[in-house]
Structure formats: structure tokens, C-alpha cells
Design a protein around this nucleic acid. Structure first.
Lengths: 119, 119
DNA sequence: CATTACAGTACCTTTTTTCATACCATACCA
DNA sequence: TGGTATGGTATGAAAAAAGGTACTGTAATG
């Protein structure tokens, strides 16, 4: 029992989280407010409809995201974070913070290099 | 100033961390002990030399990992976490913990389903 | 003399992921 | 009557990531 103790946990976690847009989708939904398909699309400039659909389906399958269809015309579909999805909050928060620091660090380094060049 | 506030931070963070093997490599190196190329290889069953080399090079470029060559024969190359790399510790720890819970949850669900089938 | 260990590189193939378009049905608005 | 908004699907192409195999040079081991 308990084989592949380490990497599988990572792999399992990352499979659910990773994808070019998944963390950002989750981050937005973790704000609490359910979002419609096109609302999400506007929040993710550059994403195609196809990619958004695919990623949302995967997140739904992982039970991280709820999908509720309102039988209206024009259609209305709302996506929201599930209770289980909320358990990702600390992970994404940590990631987000580190990302911010990382960007800042890179920026600083770039500026330092530009300084050197003008010397 | 301060455009693309959210997703770029995520993307930047994930670019550094993501890759099929990077988180696991980092996790092992975060244990503190420097590891040789083949030591790492043994810790990552299934990885090819090529993939390990590529990922280590990328991590080195991001300054998350040190690469020290000892001019010996047979060669000895040690990889260790950098100080900057250590700042990833909380992120990976959160990820790792969530991954563990995630795997457990999946396991539980699978068992429940198998129960139903034998009823 | 052949094998193994070390830390890779080179080259090519396969798989996965992403992108770009076009298309669907319906309703509302001008 | 034509355009817009809604939430998608279908299809094929392109790009990115990963994998597979063979090969390098030196030294110690059997």
C-alpha cells in the first residue's frame, strides 16, 4: 500500500489546477460571485471560447466548479466555485502572492540591467 | 502602470513551477540536501535523462536551483535549491497538502462506487 | 576485455495543448 | 430586415511538451 507516495500527490493536484487558464478561472470564481460564461470570457482576455469551455468542463468534472443552466433564451449558464473548490483557496493564494513577488523581482532585475547598459 | 494585474502574476508563477516534473524536483531539493543528477533521477521514476536535464536547466535559469560542477572523473554535478527557490516552499507545501487530500478523496469515492456495484 | 556508473547531448517521433474559423438556435433591438 | 448577444460545438492546423533511442568519454570494477 501507499505506493508512489510523493509525486502522485503533486501530479494529482497539478492535474486539477494546471492548464493555461485554470488557475485564473478558479481565482476569479473564488471571489465568491457566480459568473456567466461571457463574464468569465471578458475577465480572461485572450482566451478562446473553446478553451474556456474545455477548461470549465474539466473543472466541473473535478467537482471544483458548479455549472448551472437556466432554461432561458438567450441561454444563461452560471459557474461558481464548489465547497470543495474553496479548499484550493490557500494554494491559489500562495501561488498568487509568490507570482506577484516573482514579477516584481524580474522587473527589478531588468531595470538593473538597463542601468548597466547606459553606463 | 500596473497593467494585467491578475493573470500575469499567476502565469509568471506557473511558468516557473509548472512542467510535468518541476514541482517534484523542487520538492525534493527543498528537503535541503543537494542531490546529484542520478540521485534525482532515481527519485523520479519514469523521467528520462533528457527531461531531467531540460527541467533542471530551466530551473537554473530561473535561479531557483544551483548547479555546481565538480571537475572529477567520473563527473559529479550537484543540484541544490537557491535561497530564492526556498521562497517557493509555502507554495509547494500548500500544493502538496492539497494534493494528498485530493488523492484521498478520489480514493474514497472510488471505493464508494465499488460498494454500490457489489450491492 | 566487457560492463557499469557518471552526466549529459543529438536526433527524431509522438502526444498533448492551444489556436483559428466557421457554424448553430433563439430572442431582442433598431 | 439586419445586427447583436447568448453559450456553446465542429473541424482542422499549428505549436508546445514530452518521450525514445542512441551516443559520448573516462575510470573503476569484475
Amino acid at each position: 500500500m501507499q505506493k508512489k507516495p510523493l509525486q502522485c500527490q503533486f501530479v494529482a493536484a497539478l492535474d486539477s489546477i494546471v492548464g493555461k487558464w485554470k488557475p485564473i478561472i478558479l481565482y476569479h470564481l473564488l471571489q465568491g460571485k457566480p459568473l456567466r460564461f461571457n463574464e468569465l470570457r471578458r475577465l480572461l482576455p485572450g482566451i478562446t471560447q473553446r478553451m474556456l469551455t474545455l477548461h470549465l468542463r474539466e473543472l466541473e468534472e473535478e467537482e471544483l466548479v458548479n455549472r448551472v443552466i437556466y432554461p432561458q433564451i438567450p441561454p444563461k449558464v452560471e459557474y461558481s466555485i464548489t465547497e470543495y473548490g474553496m479548499s484550493l483557496s490557500p494554494v491559489l493564494e500562495a501561488l498568487h502572492q509568490w507570482g506577484a513577488a516573482h514579477v516584481e523581482r524580474k522587473q527589478l532585475k531588468k531595470e538593473t540591467n538597463e542601468q548597466k547598459e547606459t553606463d
